[in-house]
Computed example of a mutant assay.
Amino acid sequence: MAERPLGELLRHARQRLVDGGVGDAALDARLIVEYFSGTTRTDAISTPDRMIGNVAEIERALDRRIAGEPVHRILGHRDFYGMKLGLSAETLEPRPDTETLVDAVLPFVREIAARTGVCRVLDLGTGTGAIALALVTQEAHAVATGVDVSDDALRTAAANAGRLGVSSRFSAKKSDWFAEIDGLYHVIVSNPPYIRSSEIEDLQNEVRNFDPRRALDGGPDGLEPYREIAASASSHLESDGIVGVEIGHDQRGDVTGIFEQAGYRLVSQHKDLGDNDRVLVFGR
C-alpha cells in the first residue's frame, strides 16, 4: 500500500473507527497510528505532511480494533501507574481502578521500609506484575514476589520487571494462591477474580472475549478468592502487616464479613475515580 501523509492517515484511521462503531475512535486511531508509525502527537502537529510507509500494518490494526479487540491488546502494552507494561494472552489488562489499590497500600509500604529497611510484598494473581511493580518502583526498599498459576503471566511479569530495571527486587513464582509460598510478608495484595460466574457472559465484549476468564471468574458468588486469601494469609503475614484487596463495586459488605470472620479488622476503604467501592485494607 502506498505511503500516506501522517495527518491524512490519522483522519482516515479515525473515520474508519467511527464507521466501525468504535467508541473513543479519535483516541484509539491516534494510539494505533502513533505506535505503528513511530510518531508522536507533536509530529502530527508539526509535520502533518510526513510520509508514513507501513500503512498496511496500520490498516490491519484498525481491522482488529473494529472486530472488537481492545486497543491496548493490539499495541501489546498498557500504561499503569506511570509504567508501560507488556501484555500477553493470559494476563488481565491492568486498568486505572487498580491504581486505587497501589495508592491505598503505598504509604504503609514506605512506612515499613523507613522503619525496618525493607518492605516485603506478596502480590497474589500478579498477571502483568502491575501492583507489585508499581510498589517496588515507587519505594526503593520494597521487594516483591508476584504469584500466579499461569506460566505465561509469570514470564510477562518477569519481562516487565526487567524492562523497568527492578528484576533484583521482583521475583515471579508459580503458585496456586499460597500453596507454594514460604516466609512472612509485610503487605499482601491482590486484585483477584471477583465476577460471578453467571455474569461473565454479560461483560463487555472487549473484556469477555479478550481478558483471560481465569482472571475474571470468582466463582458462583464472586467471593471464592477472598475466602481463600482470608483463610490462609495469616500464616504468611507479619504481625503488623496488612492485606489489601480490590473488590467489585457491590462487594464491600461481603468481603469485609469474610475477613472479619477470619480474625481481621477493616483498616481502611477506598473508592475509585468513579466513586465506587474498590479497595479494602485489613489488619490483624
Rank of each mutant, 00 (worst) to 15 (best):
T40R: 05
A230G: 13
I188A: 06
E99P: 07
V281K: 05
R11G: 04
E93S: 11
E59G: 02
R214G: 13
H77G: 03
F108Y: 14
D221M: 06
I52C: 01
S46N: 12
A262K: 00
R41W: 05
G263A: 10
E111K: 11
D272H: 12
A233R: 00
L154H: 01
G23D: 12
G76Y: 06
V102H: 00
V136T: 10
G183S: 03
V105H: 00
G38Y: 02
G20A: 11
A130K: 02
A132R: 06
Y35M: 14
I188N: 06
T40E: 03
T156R: 01
R169M: 03
C119W: 02
H186Y: 08
L203G: 01
R4N: 09
P70A: 09
G257N: 13
I200Y: 04
S167G: 12
R11F: 05
R50K: 14
R214P: 09
F282D: 04
H236F: 06
I131N: 00
A114F: 03
S167K: 06
D63I: 09
E90Q: 11
V121I: 14
V143F: 07
L216V: 07
A130R: 10
D28M: 05
I32S: 04
L9C: 06
G68A: 06
E206Q: 13
E199R: 09
Y226E: 03
R110G: 09
T91C: 07
L6F: 01
E228F: 13
V33E: 01
I247F: 08
L87R: 03
N54E: 14
G283V: 14
Q15C: 05
H186M: 07
R11T: 07
A231R: 09
A142N: 01
V279W: 02
H270A: 12
L154C: 08
L85K: 03
V166I: 12
V267W: 15
K174D: 08
I66T: 10
A134N: 05
